[in-house]
C-alpha cells in the first residue's frame, strides 16, 4: 500500500472521530431536542462517512471497499427516519423549540 493512501486514511479516521466528538458535544450542549437532533443526524453521519472512507482506502480488495462504503447510505437512511420519528413525536407532544435569547 502506498504511503499516501495510508496518510489519507489516517487523516480521515481522525476527522471522523472529531465529527463524532462534535456530535456528542452538541448532544450535551444544545438547548432542546430538535437542536440536538441536528447535531446527531449531521455530525455523526459525517463522522461515520469519514471512518468508512478511511477504512475502505486500506481495504485489501475493491469488493471489500465497496462493502464498507455500502454501510454509509444504510445508516444515513436509518438515522434520517429515526430522527423524523423522534422530531414528530416531540412536536405532537407539544414540545416547543427553544427560541434563542433575544426573543425572550
Amino acid at each position: 500500500m502506498s504511503a499516501v493512501l495510508e496518510v489519507a486514511s489516517a487523516l480521515l479516521l481522525v476527522a471522523g472521530a472529531a465529527f463524532y466528538l462534535a456530535g456528542t458535544v452538541g448532544l450535551l450542549r444544545f438547548p432542546d431536542v430538535y437542536a440536538r437532533l441536528h447535531a446527531l443526524t449531521k455530525a455523526d453521519n459525517l463522522g461515520l462517512g469519514c471512518v468508512v472512507l478511511g477504512l475502505s482506502l486500506q481495504a485489501e480488495s475493491l469488493a471489500v471497499a465497496v462493502k464498507l462504503l455500502l454501510i454509509w447510505p444504510l445508516v444515513l437512511a436509518a438515522s434520517a427516519t429515526l430522527s423524523y420519528s423522534i422530531a414528530r413525536r416531540a412536536d405532537r407532544l407539544g414540545i416547543t423549540p427553544w427560541q434563542g435569547k433575544e426573543d425572550r
Binding site: 438547548p31 449531521k42 459525517l46
Partner: peptide
C-alpha cells in the same frame, strides 16, 4: 451538502458561545 452540514453543525457545537436562532 452533507459535508457542509456536518462541518457547520460541528462548528456550532464546538464554538464557545452558542449562536443559534432556531424556528419552526
Amino acid at each position: 451538502q452533507s459535508i457542509r452540514a456536518g462541518t457547520q453543525v460541528a462548528i456550532m457545537a464546538l464554538r464557545h458561545r452558542l449562536d443559534l436562532a432556531p424556528a419552526m
